[in-house]
Design a binder for these strands. Structure first.
Lengths: 115, 115
DNA sequence: GGCATGTGTCAGCTTTTCTTGACCGGTGTC
DNA sequence: GACACCGGTCAAGAAAAGCTGACACATGCC
């Protein structure tokens, strides 16, 4: 009788999160950059030309959708660096897959708590 | 030879349009409803519980992305009705496909004319 | 004339998203 | 002490998206 599943449900609501995470040119480029090689925040900011605060927000959005994942590591000289890499995701967008996902939509269009 | 393709490019910019079109619970439900059967605006508004002006806006967004298409028809009693149906689309979202699409992105994040 | 149905559009508001420029903390080297 | 680099967060504004209530047009039926 567990009413709230421990996993992110992987259906309508989750699909919306993914779509929202990818619906931005900057975030597409971030995913593209991380698909080629894992990178840490400051370096990624330089390469993409995005400011640190902004990049941080975008990475949060991508990570919340499960598209990328970050790990805090220590470099040789003792600096704390957060490395990000893409998750091996795969989503198919077709009328049928959307019709199926729409059945498990809980949101009417209003916000909802992530946790 | 031909530097500017006559079609909507079908790449980064177009993918963004599709993602933006699907990034909304109402629009997912609209696509789902139209996937089951074609329908006209007022009837669709009743079934989905969306107001006419709002539904009109959502349909425009979906049609602009090429996910649905509308046709103006005349009913038996002479009423002009706009019927919508889904287009048979298929989009794969993977890190690689996104990396590929990101290369053809023209937008930095700013708006651009549709034509 | 009413009323019902269908279509579309407009102004104006609320909410969300995006973005920037500060700040804060830390470590290490000169 | 400077400065470099790394990390993060905050407030506040600008821009985009979402939504509503009018209003317009049309037709057909009582």
């Amino acid at each position: 009788m567990n009413e709230n599943p421990p996993e992110p449900t992987r259906t309508g609501d989750h699909l919306l999160k993914v779509l929202g995470a990818l619906n931005n040119p900057h975030r597409l480029r971030i995913v593209a950059a991380l698909a080629k090689e894992r990178n840490y925040v400051s370096q990624l900011a330089r390469e993409t030309g995005i400011s640190r605060p902004l990049l941080h927000m975008h990475l949060q959005r991508l990570e919340a959708a499960g598209l990328v994942s970050g790990t805090l590591e220590l470099s040789a000289d003792g600096k704390a660096m957060r490395f990000y890499e893409v998750a091996p995701f795969l989503y198919q967008l077709t009328p049928d897959s959307i019709a199926q996902a729409a059945e498990t939509l809980t949101r009417t269009g209003q916000k909802e708590e992530t946790r």
